[in-house]
Design a protein around this nucleic acid. Structure first.
Lengths: 401, 401
DNA sequence: GACCTAAATATAAGATCCAAATAAATTGAG
DNA sequence: CTCAATTTATTTGGATCTTATATTTAGGTC
């Protein structure tokens, strides 16, 4: 189990093994010939490397007769595949009020999923970790696995996260959300900002080198991908949008500096629903029961108060888009998270507000199609990327003794 | 001269050669023992690799008796150094009104320098390239070199530049500035945005993974380094600051959207010097003769009109700092270029405007110490980085036949 | 000149890859 | 059923490169 650097003579073998394994991680079943084409190595070398990977527990030779669609002539090729039992990855969206876990195999196929409501403030840091561990255990048990099968767990939290997985000490909230998962979950764990994970998920869906993903339900966060790379910042603060309220003409009243579109729509609606001078269907709802969905729905039906709120959100979104496009040359702004479902009217209004004479092309504004799963999907994607990046850094679950 | 990939058996040798060469690029003279420590290879291997690099023209064995401070025991070590004749790098600041060229050796020591005023609009694209070629020729001749000695030339231009070295087609100005140097200068050429090069120079001076460098004399440009990496954006637009005028409460009047602090100070002073109601020392100057230096000087002497202008610039700078700090977690904002000399009062005022209650630490605001040479210094630094990154991609000037 | 030391060289062994030759497995034709 | 054709697997020999271990060498010291 020593991770010591291999001697220089063995370096070449390791390089080739990694290349081959990276290829295997993206294929179902493959022959030596296919691996030769992918890696540029000789047949003898490929087979030798495959031998090593079988011994290590990464690959297994497949011998079932169902050799669909193979060439009708010649000696049949030996076929390999990633060993199912080698391990799985776990993604966890550790939000403020919900946990979502997905267990996936090493090719990214979702094996199992669990969701649970939690009360973070009642649980505290230790309680959040305990609850996460339990939920992961259940999700693994659902698919007949246990914690030893997990090669890598990626956790998304609603807080800035630096490169070491820590959050700045400023806010208590951040420390509560980033509950120390990397210490107290089993195996290798990566902690990442939730919006960053959503951005990774979006980019996997529709690749683009310069895209911003806004996670904007209750709290506001942005994942920024520039030149194909996720931005982090020293303390993980890249993607914070505090400047909106600091710069903007409107002084921040009661709405918190980090409120997302969902929270804003709800707050604005509740505040104005009685003082509003026109007729509004929102008044039929109990004031404490109005939420963002109701506002979006009313706006679609032509309600004027809801329309006003949509317009204000549109202004806010347009501002964000202008800054991102101008400062970072962002090509596409994606609204992700549960809020994405009803956000279209806001997008339309924001598009109409974008300046037309600014020289450079305008950013595209779109809603995500991943829904509320964006964060946890991004966690899986991130875990797979990590394994593909240096597969040999992970040890597959050993063969039966 | 074929850049074909080496056969896999020779790959290891190439890896080791690159590592050793990278080490040599940062040392004056070194022994095999030192190289062994740096690369982790055996003595026999190191000597073999050195042999190869001598044959290739990268290294030379040094045999002069001046073996300063060597260990007094044992057989003397063979000592190697980078071959001076292997080549040089060239940096060119191809501004709107000035060209500056620096010729440096492969360790970054400045060998020669030339500066020339030009009239870009009279010269046109072809004229700019011609003028650049001539100035480079002269600078090389000054130090007894010619164009064949140049391994890499890096050119800084005041325009957005994408990863392929091209500028967006929107403005004629950008096309004029990015004059096609990569096509028409001899040897390998990289074209880069001038503010980006200034950022590279600043980072080399005082390393920091998250820093913004504002090049803000006549035109405004920013070089953004986040997570230790320069941001570019798809069309090279990262670092543009158009949002300032789009968002801000003040509608853009005559000042151009991309005016730098120097241009703004001059324009504001000239416009208000006569209508200003107080006394101002600026009135003693001819209206067409006032420039930014005069305004800064007057402000230092307590002139109220100059003070007003400084304050307006401070507001602008503070806005920029807030956005950069919040959106990208930038730790330090550097004002670079010729304007940096008198900028201190603006920095002071801007610091006083930064919000104190924003949770995260505030960005540091500093003036560059590189003066007007920041861009060309960054060009040299960038060229060296390029060579260090994959030295074997460059062929040293051949040995005497 | 004998002696000491650290580096250079020489030699042998191990690891890896490639190229070419050989062997095996499968299909399809006669 | 046998046999050629075909494709792949395996074996073998050669080349490159690195390491480890001796052996030699170059300078200094006593």
């Amino acid at each position: 189990m020593d991770g010591t650097t291999a001697s220089s003579t063995q370096l070449l073998r390791q390089i080739n093994s990694e290349a081959l394994l990276r290829f295997a991680l993206q294929e179902q079943v493959f022959t030596a010939g296919e691996a030769m084409a992918a890696t540029g190595l000789t047949r003898a070398t490929v087979l030798g490397v495959c031998d090593g990977l079988v011994d290590a527990g990464w690959l297994e030779e497949v011998n079932d007769g169902a050799e669909a669609g193979r060439a009708p002539k010649g000696r049949p090729a030996r076929r390999y595949q990633l060993r199912e039992a080698a391990g799985v990855v776990v993604g966890l969206d550790a939000g403020e009020s919900h946990f979502t876990v997905i267990v996936a195999d090493l090719r990214g196929r979702e094996l199992g999923k669990r969701r649970r409501s939690i009360d973070s403030h009642a649980l505290g840091r230790a309680g959040r970790v305990r609850s996460a561990r339990e939920l992961i255990r259940l999700a693994l048990a659902d698919v007949g696995r246990d914690a030893d099968d997990v090669l890598l767990t990626v956790v998304g939290v609603p807080a800035p996260v630096d490169a070491e997985g820590r959050s700045p000490g400023g806010g208590e909230f951040w420390q509560l959300m980033n509950s120390g998962f990397d210490q107290d979950l089993q195996g290798k764990v990566l902690v990442e900002n939730d919006a960053n994970l959503a951005a990774i998920a979006e980019q996997a869906q529709q690749p683009s080198a310069n895209v911003a993903t806004l996670l904007s339900g209750e709290r506001f966060g942005a994942g920024l991908i520039v030149d194909g790379r996720l931005l982090r910042g020293r303390r993980g603060g890249a993607g914070e949008m505090r400047f909106l309220d600091i710069l903007a003409d409107n002084k921040p009243d009661d709405e918190g500096i980090s409120d997302g579109f969902g929270a804003l729509a709800r707050k604005w609606a509740r505040k104005r629903v009685h003082s509003y001078e026109g007729t509004t269907s929102l008044r039929r709802l109990p004031e404490d029961g109005i939420n963002a969905e109701d506002v979006f729905q009313a706006a679609r039906e032509g309600d004027p108060l809801a329309g006003d709120i949509i317009a204000r959100l549109g202004v806010r979104l347009a501002r964000i888009a202008v800054v991102l496009s101008s400062l970072l040359d962002i090509e596409r702004v994606v609204i992700a998270g549960g809020i994405a479902r009803g956000i279209d009217p806001v997008l339309e209004h924001a598009r109409s507000l974008l300046p037309v004479d600014s020289g450079l092309p305008l950013p595209e504004l779109v809603a995500s199609s991943l829904g509320a799963d964006a964060v946890v999907q991004g966690a899986i994607e991130s875990a797979l990327t990590g394994i593909r990046h240096e597969p040999m850094a992970f040890l597959p679950r050993a063969l039966q003794p």
